[in-house]
Amino acid sequence: MSAVQLELEILRYDPEKDQEPHFQTYQVACQEEWMVLDAINHVKDEVDTTLSYRWSCHMAVCGSCGMMIDGQPKLACKVSVKDYANKKVRIEPLANFPIERDLVVVQDDFMEKLKRVKPYIIRKEEQPIEAGEYKQSPAELKKFKQFTLCINCLCCYAACPEYALTPEFMGPAALALAHRYNTDSRDQGLAERHKELSKPEGVWDCSFTDTCSIACPKHVDPASALQQLKIATTVQWYKELIGMGDK
């Protein structure tokens, strides 16, 4: 168990005490197998119990521990301390979100936007449960599957320059989920979602920097979803223009 020495510069902010955030430095001797989250937990348990941050699953699926590590949005539980061995590493709360306290950011904005894209199956007629499942071929499943893998960690919002410049923008994760339902063979809600997506702050604020997809720790490709959505939204707009808008 050889040790990895890490110098963590963690951004601290307590609204009850601080006018603005400041960095605080912690030296941590890490075990080789540790993730950056383990190093932060070590600080919390052994050095400074006042440090606040979110975490839970430690297996990159709950999406709690998104933060800026060395300037990039990452899940702290998914990056090895070895990647930063013997370096100064800046740990900051996710970019583009207000800081609530230390590494904890305010996420209300995303929660509101997620709701607006209607991320659920919309049908004109429900098939009764007794009639069994909706049939869906493996190919139909595969069509939208990757977009179901979003864990809502918000790394993509932290990576998105358009969200930084225009906070009204719906943003990558919410829109990728809209696309996920639009392309689900069981769904018939495209026209209804179109109302929200076709607003200026819907799909159109995306300028396709692709940085959301680069940042995604779950290998989802929101940038691709966004481009496909723009095409679908355009088609739907032309359809509505000639009076054939209802899917």
Partner: peptide
């Protein structure tokens, strides 16, 4: 909550991809 300032004119120099 503290809102970090974002430069509207130089943001694209911060990151190679930008």
């Amino acid at each position: 909550a503290y809102v970090r300032p974002v430069s509207k004119t130089t943001w694209y120099l911060k990151d190679r991809n930008y």
